[in-house]
Design a protein around this nucleic acid. Structure first.
Lengths: 209, 209
DNA sequence: TTCGGAATATGAATAATCCTCACGTTTGCA
DNA sequence: TGCAAACGTGAGGATTATTCATATTCCGAA
């Protein structure tokens, strides 16, 4: 909130770890950060604590991460890579409306469970709005995921306007993330209802009525 | 990001200004904060800068605001109060489906224009996710606005399950805010398209198919 | 094997902020 | 008029992120 401009692009790692030794240390740093975020949230995560828990000096941290946000960013990037693979696989062989219904519903469930279970993911994507670099990553991720959806839609609805499909897919995806964030911030029962309504809305739009 | 736990409830103003003099000073503080947020965002806003620009000492700031977040919160509260009045007025005399279409569309347009034009509002509701107190305010606001919508829906769809209507209205409202945030963070043309799709999705759900 | 430079490791020191507090000033009222 | 409460002040305490001069380890070329 104070020392960090929280705006500009995250610089690339000051130095990529090339030796085995340092690659392991970087892993330890990320693991420590992840644990701390899970415990207290990324805002409360202190660089000194990360270093201590990783068993490295504070200077080593800055050897590989230009600043605090870069650590969070690195974790976020891993999540996006993982989930993109999952999404792409789930949507790959959808060929009819019923298949899309099933696949989409499944994806939403997976995301919902992930958000409920993974405090780190939760924390990272919550802070998203305030951090320009994270926001960009999220938007890029969202567009990539929407592209998978567009590919499916083009198969199911060959006549539809491509731009319109893209807009729809992108919006549906972003709203899904918003719906997840909302669902996990209310009690479980209401959250479940919200997710169900989201599914209905999204599918109606995706299937074109 | 550092000094601020960014979690707990915002304390009430340390002291409510009772004298005319101090009420004016508090106004100046809020105006200064608002200007700074518009210029650089609330993260980059410095307490010292707010004090200087308001022509008061740093100590005076803390006389009326327990901490930095409380200033942002105070501004946010004003926005919500204003917009609730507007929303309630617009939805008050809706009595049929066509009327809801018109009123809802108008509300979305108003919000969209507001988000485009008001950097402060934009900034505040972006930071929302990271700040527990702001998040609570936003959720409460959203529920209040959803309640207006529910009142309308109960008139238009007397047979529907009330709980279901509430869930729908709440979700639609929250997704509207997400759609706005998304729309203003892409170029204008795509933003317009996204808003249009959101309107269609939302209305279809609100009118029950 | 040996050697030199690149990569890596360190943590005390620096810098940027938020926020406190002890003390002075103004206001409103009995 | 006097006094208590409200108000005003800004130097300084406290907490962090981040830097940097220095020491150590690695690894390819001679």
């Amino acid at each position: 909130m104070e020392g960090i401009p929280a705006n500009e692009q995250v610089a690339s790692p000051r130095r990529a770890p090339t030796q085995q030794r340092s690659r392991e240390r970087v892993e330890r740093m990320l693991a420590a950060a992840s644990a701390l975020i899970a415990e207290q949230g990324s805002d409360a995560m202190r660089m000194g604590e990360v270093a201590e828990r990783a068993g490295v000096s504070i200077g080593s941290l800055y050897q590989f991460f230009p600043d605090k946000r870069a650590i969070v960013w690195a974790l976020a990037e891993r999540y996006t890579a993982e989930s993109q693979a999952c999404i792409s696989a789930t949507l790959a062989d959808v060929s009819d409306a019923e298949g899309l219904r099933r696949a989409f519903s499944e994806l939403v469930d997976i995301y919902y469970r992930l958000f409920l279970a993974e405090p780190v993911m939760r924390d990272i994507w919550s802070g998203t709005q305030a951090d320009k670099a994270l926001r960009r990553l999220e938007l890029a991720d969202s567009r990539a995921n929407a592209a998978f959806l567009v590919a499916v839609l083009k198969r199911l609805r060959p006549g539809a306007d491509p731009v319109s499909l893209e807009t729809t897919a992108f919006l549906v995806w972003q709203m899904g993330e918003a719906a997840m964030r909302l669902a996990i911030s209310v009690d479980r029962e209401e959250g479940d209802r919200l997710v169900a309504v989201y599914k209905r809305m999204a599918l109606r739009e995706l299937l074109g009525e």
